[in-house]
Design a protein around this nucleic acid. Structure first.
Lengths: 215, 215
DNA sequence: ATAAAAATTTAGACAAAACTAAAAATAATA
DNA sequence: TATTATTTTTAGTTTTGTCTAAATTTTTAT
């Protein structure tokens, strides 16, 4: 697989989680910052290689092969992110682009040795699960902070989108994965939350609450 | 720079060490396993980018820019090799191809953090020097085992070519970088050496002696 | 010095992955 | 249902890096 093919497969994998019955050409184009016509070309090629099943105008799904490949790319991406944060001391908002390159390094042995070196982590620095050597993904029932019950204690376990701005906001508020969090009040007008983290009370917008997973 | 451009620059850098007054088109083609005509095309492009100075039929040399870039690629390659051996437990004959991919990862920050993580090594697992962040390379006056004086103690510091077969031969003979070595006798007929390593006497062919650096 | 050999470059072509513009199919709406 | 809007595909180009075959330059050898 070329780097380009891998990027398509990965994007189709992620989009499949939202639209399992078929991913749209335009959606793929949007994610890859390319044109719909380029996507069509690539889908034909991926279909010939039995990585996706594709019929004109109907969207694509991953085949067994494509699904396996996708999980291995995601595995690489997330393991490299752990390495960058845990070993090299990068901040969690700095690692995505570098991991985007590292995920295309070919060697199977490399990634399995890296996995071992990192002590077989199950989650990456953003709380996303890392497929193991067989592609098995650990499930956690997490919910968005915006959906939790009042006055109950939760723990931060992940972020929905890992944009730099959002992650840096969390850093500034000293909210990290593992932080205990309790929603004290919910403002019914704009869904702003009054929460307790690190024994301090802060207010959190609905937009933030909609992007933070707790457990 | 594209990956392909980087590979050309790196090869020109290595060949320049042997032919400093101009590297031949064919030599480059040989190293990259490509055709001379492809090399000519690329040399024009690299020349336009001021990475090499090139005039038809006269061979190429690196410009200041090209030289700096080349050293950074070599720096990346060798730092990754150290990482693979020291941290991930690869054998020294297994790391070349993987480092060949890793050397093209773009981030400056990444490589400097890796350098720090590895404790700023000056040499890679094969004894080759690693350019520092400013491109400065530590020189060591090393000589080939075939050129040393009899009965004097030397230390292995590097290999000339790091082919798997050669490295595995050294492993088998328990010769590692840092091993003390003394040449006891030299057979004048075929230049075979009788040497002492690890308090054991072994015979070493001229071909081996011509590929092992000592100090 | 000249012919033969080797090395290098040019010219033209190809595959991969992208693009633009136009055509076709599907979805949405009056 | 007919029409419009949106999405997707097709057709034809472009760029990058490669190739083959032919032409040119340089080197070697007679």
């Amino acid at each position: 697989m070329t780097i380009s093919e891998e990027n398509y497969i990965k994007v189709i994998y992620h989009l499949s989680q939202v639209s399992p019955k078929g991913v749209n050409t335009n959606a793929i184009a949007g994610m890859l910052d390319t044109k719909a016509s380029s996507v069509t070309d690539m889908l034909k090629k991926l279909s010939d290689k039995d990585l996706v099943s594709y019929q004109k105008y109907q969207g694509v799904t991953l085949t067994e092969n494509g699904f396996r490949s996708a999980k291995m790319i995601v595995r690489k991406h997330r393991l490299w992110e752990v390495f960058l944060v845990e070993k090299l001391g990068f901040a969690w908002d700095e690692v995505h682009d570098i991991a985007e390159e590292l995920e295309h390094i070919k060697s199977e042995t490399l990634i399995n040795k890296l996995d071992e070196y990192l002590d077989f982590p199950a989650f990456d620095p953003h709380g996303d699960p890392i497929p193991d050597v067989n592609g098995v993904i650990k499930k956690v029932n997490k919910l968005l902070l915006s959906e939790v019950e009042l006055r109950k204690e939760y723990q931060c376990v992940g972020v929905k989108h890992s944009s730099s701005e959002f992650l840096q906001y969390l850093d500034k508020q000293k909210i990290a994965l593992g932080s205990k969090i309790i929603v004290k009040e919910k403002e019914s007008f704009d869904d702003t939350l009054l929460v307790e983290v690190n024994s301090k009370e802060i207010t959190i917008s609905n937009k933030i609450a909609n992007n933070l997973y707790v457990h």
